[in-house]
């Protein structure tokens, strides 16, 4: 079955990615050197891609080969395209002490079962149709990817992260410093850490999740698995959990300075007559799930949809 395009074209970074990809397919009209290379590859091999600036689009296909197209930025030394056993490496090599290098746009087609590791500095990164594990890193570029059931790890400093799952259980880990993360249609385990970015997660069935922020907001929507363990923590960001379907869980919510709003009924109480903290511990339904939310200044909202 042909993989469906799940990249959201409404966002500026996605539009830029597509525009760059299309532009890269018409090299005659642009400066720089066009790239068109192809090599046989293991259907479940590993692919490493590295490009400092520009864009990288990785697409999974049903062939046992890797194809690299696009445009090598003017001033770049060369494109390394090598294979050793199961590992294929695609890397933009820049000359030493270069001061004037244009950005490079890469479109890489890999066997759908490949595991990929992509690293960029300011290049935006888009992935679709890859069924193997993904390790995606960018300093300031945005990351957009689709994930099936393998592990995904995304790290950025200021870039935003957008992940679309297929509601199959997987392990997703996202770390940003100031970038926002929007994670949708995920199931299984989702872990995230940010300083000032906002993390929004929509899970089909949440079984494990640990999210932490310093000043960014955390928002999670999903259905609780019977043995779910959710642990959210924020210093000054707000935390909101909207649960779908029947809820059977033990809740442990506490905030030092923030408010606790609970749609399930029980009200939060002061922890101490002389201290500002409030806490709320209660059980809802008969399930064995556990939800723990802690904040310093941030508000906590717990609701059922």
């Amino acid at each position: 079955m042909k993989p469906r395009l799940l990249i959201d074209l409404d966002t500026p970074s996605a539009r830029r990615l597509v525009a760059l990809a299309l532009a890269a397919m018409a090299p005659a009209t642009l400066a720089g050197t066009s790239i068109n290379q192809r090599a046989a590859a293991d259907p479940a091999g590993q692919v490493e891609i590295s490009n400092i600036s520009g864009s990288v689009v990785v697409t999974g296909w049903d062939r046992s080969e890797i194809e690299v197209t696009g445009e090598l930025g003017e001033g770049s030394e060369r494109l390394e395209f090598s294979r050793a056993d199961q590992l294929t490496r695609v890397k933009v090599i820049l000359p030493k002490r270069s001061s004037n290098v244009e950005s490079t746009d890469l479109i890489v087609r890999v066997p759908a079962g490949s595991s990929i590791a992509v690293n960029t500095v300011s290049a935006d990164l888009g992935v679709q149709g890859v069924r193997g594990s993904q390790r995606l890193q960018s300093v300031s570029g945005d990351i957009q990817t689709t994930v099936v059931s393998e592990d995904l790890e995304c790290k950025t400093v200021s870039g935003d992260v957008r992940v679309t799952g297929s509601s199959q259980r997987s392990l997703t880990t996202v770390m940003t410093v100031s970038g926002d993360a929007r994670l949708e249609r995920l199931a299984g385990e989702v872990n995230g850490n940010t300083v000032s970015g906002n993390i929004t997660v929509s899970m089909g069935e949440a079984s494990r999740s640990r999210l932490r922020s310093t000043s960014g907001d955390l928002g999670v929507t999903g259905r609780l698995a019977g043995d779910a363990r959710l642990d959210f923590e924020s210093m000054s960001g707000n935390v909101r959990l909207d649960l779908e379907g029947p809820v059977g869980a033990e809740f442990d919510l506490s905030s030092f300075n923030g408010d606790i709003n609970n749609c399930f009924g029980p009200k939060a109480a002061r922890t101490d007559e002389y201290a500002p903290g409030t806490e709320l511990r209660f059980r809802q339904g008969a399930g064995g799930a556990r939800v723990r939310i802690k904040t310093f200044n941030g508000d906590i909202a717990l609701c059922n949809k």
Partner: peptide, 30 residues
Amino acid sequence: ELLFNIYQDEILVLTNVDRLIAADTTRIPL
């Protein structure tokens, strides 16, 4: 608990950012 985690986060941020910036010239382990 919050204070302990914030110290941990600071180390995590310093380590991760350092690695991210360094990673363009190093091999990314799969």
